[in-house]
């Protein structure tokens, strides 16, 4: 009975989030300013670091940022800021 009740409440929360377009907790948040700056919240670490590509670990996903003159302006807790001439942003499954 308690298990059924719990699953119902979880379903209700999910429904509210879906209806309000709220991200579920733990979902990475990405914000871009043109192709100059990328702000990322929810970064778990750096998978690969190259001159033209930075690949970040987002938990279930991986984010690949490619471009030129890429600079990781800051990497603090789960926040990451990348600046430079960003050419593409791609997601991959880990």
């Amino acid at each position: 009975m308690a298990k059924k009740c719990r699953s119902r409440s979880a379903q209700a929360i999910k429904n509210i989030q879906t209806s309000r377009e709220m991200p579920s907790p733990g979902t990475p948040r990405l914000e871009m300013t043109g192709n100059q700056e990328l702000l990322l919240d929810g970064c778990k670490g750096v998978v690969a670091y190259d001159e033209n590509e930075i690949r970040l670990n987002l938990g279930d996903l991986a984010l690949a940022v490619t471009g030129a003159d890429l600079t990781m302006r800051t990497l603090r807790f789960e926040e990451c800021a990348i600046t430079g001439q960003i050419a593409s942003v791609a997601f991959f499954n880990n």
Binding site: Y49, D50, E51, D69, L70, T71, R73, T74, L75, R76
Partner: peptide, 14 residues
């Protein structure tokens, strides 16, 4: 990052 050392303006050149 794990040891709490903050790096900034990190870039890879040559």
């Amino acid at each position: 990052r794990h040891t709490g050392l903050e790096l900034w303006n990190t870039e890879l050149r040559h």
